[in-house]
Write a protein that binds this DNA or RNA. Sequence first.
DNA 1: CATGAATGAGAGTTCATTCAT
DNA 2: AATGAATGAACTCTCATTCAT
Lengths: 206, 206, 206, 206
Amino acid sequence: MTVDKKEHIMNVAIELFAEKGFEGTSVRDLAARADVNVAMVNYYFGSKDRLFEAIVEYKASFMRGKLDEIEADTKMSEIQKIDLIIENYVAKILSNPSFHRVLHQELLVSERESMHTNILKIFMRNIKTLRNIIEMGVKKKVFKKVDPELTMATLIGTINQTMLSKAMCNVLMEKDGSFDPYTDPHFRQRLIKHLKQVIHAYLVKE
Amino acid sequence: MTVDKKEHIMNVAIELFAEKGFEGTSVRDLAARADVNVAMVNYYFGSKDRLFEAIVEYKASFMRGKLDEIEADTKMSEIQKIDLIIENYVAKILSNPSFHRVLHQELLVSERESMHTNILKIFMRNIKTLRNIIEMGVKKKVFKKVDPELTMATLIGTINQTMLSKAMCNVLMEKDGSFDPYTDPHFRQRLIKHLKQVIHAYLVKE
Amino acid sequence: MTVDKKEHIMNVAIELFAEKGFEGTSVRDLAARADVNVAMVNYYFGSKDRLFEAIVEYKASFMRGKLDEIEADTKMSEIQKIDLIIENYVAKILSNPSFHRVLHQELLVSERESMHTNILKIFMRNIKTLRNIIEMGVKKKVFKKVDPELTMATLIGTINQTMLSKAMCNVLMEKDGSFDPYTDPHFRQRLIKHLKQVIHAYLVKE
Amino acid sequence: MTVDKKEHIMNVAIELFAEKGFEGTSVRDLAARADVNVAMVNYYFGSKDRLFEAIVEYKASFMRGKLDEIEADTKMSEIQKIDLIIENYVAKILSNPSFHRVLHQELLVSERESMHTNILKIFMRNIKTLRNIIEMGVKKKVFKKVDPELTMATLIGTINQTMLSKAMCNVLMEKDGSFDPYTDPHFRQRLIKHLKQVIHAYLVKE
DNA sequence: CATGAATGAGAGTTCATTCAT
DNA sequence: AATGAATGAACTCTCATTCAT
């Protein structure tokens, strides 16, 4: 019951932080929306700051397992791996855009160093894996001699650009406010297709 | 003198907002850092919110003029235009990454509708121009039949991904904290080169 | 204990508002005098404005019950009823002149519409009752054909004139500042006697 | 020109103080409404407080001359004098209800002692004259042995009660908000008639 | 284990006033 | 003589947090 309540608070917090930002969300708002007592946040997490850290750690597993699995797979070609990562990455982010937005929000703010560091650790791990695959492809001469770091920036950046603001996305897609790109399956397929085409064109020899 | 002071406050505000976020920055912090009286912010701008809007409008010209000029030029090919836009866009963002970060921060937060709307207007204008060029290239059959909106997402997203967090960028670049990517000319050239390659590979026929 | 604290704040507020006016009283003054935390006012009442409204409602019962009782009494003559109302009215106002002054202060200020309206409601109810009695007396031909509204203005106005300013009252009574008319029983009797005489002379036939 | 400007500011101040109270009126509001510079108030009057005092002194003459004249007149009977005072008093107050309300507002607030004192001086003078006439009438046995101070309270209080709040007056008169009692000649006649009847009934023998 | 009451700090904003010109 | 810019103090209100129960 207690664990459920903690999780419940964290999930509501993710929603609210994504909506209004960390600073813009008050503990009272959070307690009200989660239907718990105001004191519960400090009771469970010690402070609002540490609630945020708890959220980051709680979700830290992120793509960890899947990425390791893909990297280790010996039967797939490098380009197959990249494609699979694109699919998984898009799926993962679209499955919880709120959390993704919260993470990025924090990356934009240089204060709260400890959180910053924690979030970076997650990204570093993922980046390293992707980098390994690209370099392997380059070594095997199936990939062009590309800029591996900026290739990742392109991959992640493209997704982020569409994911970070629903409003921005709707402007891009020429849809009105009622369209929710995060749950629309056509949009998801379109995004995956575009990413594969871009990466293939840039990465694959001939 | 007066104009200078207003501008001074706006510049300090851009710095602080980029560092600590809009909500995270107090008017008192701002006044202290800008070395002006607390009341000056409200005296000049009416409110903290309207200070933000003033900043957005102050910087709104952004790439406006340049983009219009490029679009209207009849001597350049479409791919030359795209290349020029990449160069200008990278130069512009790198020249004031703080402001760029502030804009993105606000886009992540769905509250404060009026700001949101103002910021989106700026982006929409730029996006429209880029879209026109891509569609013209497709029509002339020098470009492949691509996804124009997501192409823009790739272009802008790649830059953002490197620009939004100095720390993140250093992780990508495998540099330590002392390296400032925003002022390093090699990094700039590298980013421009990468973007051109990606866009060319994806966009140009043959 | 909680109820006591709320009541305590309201009572201190009545004192201070009467002394310095609503606008002239700061929440900090109030908190200091009541020996509570500054935040308590907003915690209990939501805002300074709503504190005032709470006070008005808290005291709204005013003469409500008594007036209804007197009006409904079938054994008393109209003039007896008027006399009783005079006695009660004088007693009530003298028992809490501070509050009475606060109400009048707010009536003088046209801003803060909602308060205005709430206060007027209280007066209207009381006025209606008094009016009914006078009109009944006129109908029964024991009262002259008088101006019922202005009769009320005379009754209430006379009391107010003596009640609203201790200093003014002392000037009227040719007493020095140390004399407190509100607690002096002789003054009370004198006021009641005068009012009865005026009203009788004006109202009663023959 | 300067004197005009000072007077202009005072007149606008009277309006605003009457509308929103002394504390509720900001120097900026006042400057804006009077269409002068913010600094003018302090420039001309030294401070907001001293502006108030200047207003009181500026208007201090009040009924002075007329009252003295009436008192000194040897051809009129005491009751004729009283009637004339009623007429003049009602006329005077109705001619500038804003100022009258401002004075009363200040009497309700015990702070700002010096203003208090100044205002009281004005009233004292008027009260003294009225008192003399009543006592003369009592001495001549044309008046009953009344309570002279409270008689004045009745006279002034009745007028105040109708004058102080337009809203209250409308409730009394059963009119809606659009009715302005201060400029309606019928209301004025009605008030004078009522006051004479009350005072006659109470004061005059037989 | 959980809570409603209570708190001090700090938020944005407005104020009357002053000062350089 | 007159003003627009600028100020420091104080305003109401909200915040994350604590504490007695």
